[in-house]
C-alpha cells in the first residue's frame, strides 16, 4: 500500500503572530516556519502503518513556495520515503489544494491519503473534506485512531459528545486530530538519510489545476484584546454579575 501525506509549511506554533500594518495579512518576515502540527501527526501515523507492515511507501507532499521543500525534508527525516513539491508563489485556498492533491492522486494512485484536520495558520478545516468529495472517496475526519485490515479501515473520530467509529473502504481520505498519536522527532541517522531521498518538483499548471483566487481578503485584524477579569466575592455575587452585568442568565 501507498500513503500520500500532506505537509503544510506554517508559522511555528510558538510564534506570537502580528498583523501587517496595512491589514492585508499576517507578517511573515523573520518568523520561524514549521510543519503544521496536525500534519506531523499525519506523517507519524503513516510511519506507524509502515512499521506495522501494512504500508510500503510514504510520499510527503507540500504545496507552496520553494521553502516548502524544508517541510518535506522534515517529513523525510521523520521517515517518509520521498517527496513531491508543487511549487507556486500564489496564495492558495482549500479548494485549490484539494484539486492539486486530486491531480497527484491520479498520478500516484495511493490507497490512503492523510491530511491534518486543519492548518494552524488559517484554520480552514476544509481541504480533506473537499478532496474526498472530488475523488468520491470515503472520508474519516478528526481521526483519533486508525486501524487497517483487509482492505478496509476502522477510523475512530472525535465528534461532539464522544467517539464515533466508522468502517471505510480503501482508498480513503483521513484527517488527523490531536490525540491520534505523538509524533516522533527525526533521529540523527534519519536526518542524514533524508539527504539522499528524492523530492520531485511540479507546478499547478503541469497538473492542470487552475489556481485563480475565488476569495478576496478584505481586511485582517487582531482579535479584540481580552478585558481583565474580576474576582467575585461569592456565588451570590457571581449570579448577580451574570444576571445584571453580563446579562446572560
Amino acid at each position: 500500500m501507498k500513503v500520500l501525506v500532506a505537509v503544510k509549511r506554517v508559522v511555528d506554533y510558538n510564534v506570537k503572530i502580528r498583523v501587517k500594518a496595512d491589514q492585508t495579512g499576517v507578517d511573515l518576515n523573520n518568523v520561524k516556519m514549521s510543519m503544521n502540527p496536525f500534519d506531523e501527526i499525519g506523517v507519524e501515523e503513516a510511519l506507524r502503518m509502515k512499521e506495522a507492515g501494512s504500508v510500503e511507501e510514504i510520499v510527503a507532499v507540500s504545496i507552496g513556495v520553494q521553502q516548502c521543500q524544508e517541510t518535506i525534508r522534515t517529513a523525510l527525516a521523520m521517515g517518509a520515503d520521498r517527496g513531491i513539491l508543487v511549487k507556486t508563489e500564489q496564495e492558495l485556498e482549500p479548494l485549490h489544494v484539494a484539486k492539486i492533491m486530486a491531480a497527484l492522486i491520479a498520478e500516484e494512485q495511493p490507497d490512503v491519503v492523510i491530511l491534518g484536520k486543519q492548518a494552524i495558520d488559517d484554520d480552514c478545516n476544509q481541504t480533506g473534506q473537499m478532496l474526498a468529495a472530488l475523488m468520491d472517496w470515503p472520508q474519516g475526519t478528526f481521526a483519533s485512531k486508525i486501524e487497517l485490515a483487509d482492505g478496509k479501515a476502522n477510523v475512530t473520530r472525535e465528534v461532539d459528545g464522544g467517539l464515533q467509529t466508522l468502517t471505510l473502504d480503501l482508498p480513503m481520505v483521513v484527517t488527523t486530530d490531536l490525540r491520534l498519536n505523538e509524533p516522533r522527532y527525526a533521529s540523527l541517522p534519519n536526518i542524514m538519510k533524508a539527504k539522499k531521498k528524492p523530492i520531485d518538483e511540479k507546478t499547478p499548471e503541469e497538473l492542470g489545476v487552475d489556481t485563480a483566487p475565488r476569495l478576496t481578503t478584505l481586511k485582517v485584524e487582531d482579535p479584540p484584546a481580552r478585558q481583565a477579569g474580576v474576582k467575585v466575592e461569592d456565588v451570590a455575587d457571581l449570579v448577580d454579575k451574570l444576571r445584571n452585568e453580563a446579562g446572560v442568565i
Partner: peptide, 15 residues
C-alpha cells in the same frame, strides 16, 4: 544546511 537546521531543531524540540 537542511541537516544542520534539523539538528538545531532537534535540540530545540528536545528542550
Amino acid at each position: 544546511t537542511p541537516e544542520q537546521q534539523m539538528i538545531y531543531d532537534y535540540g530545540s524540540k528536545l528542550a
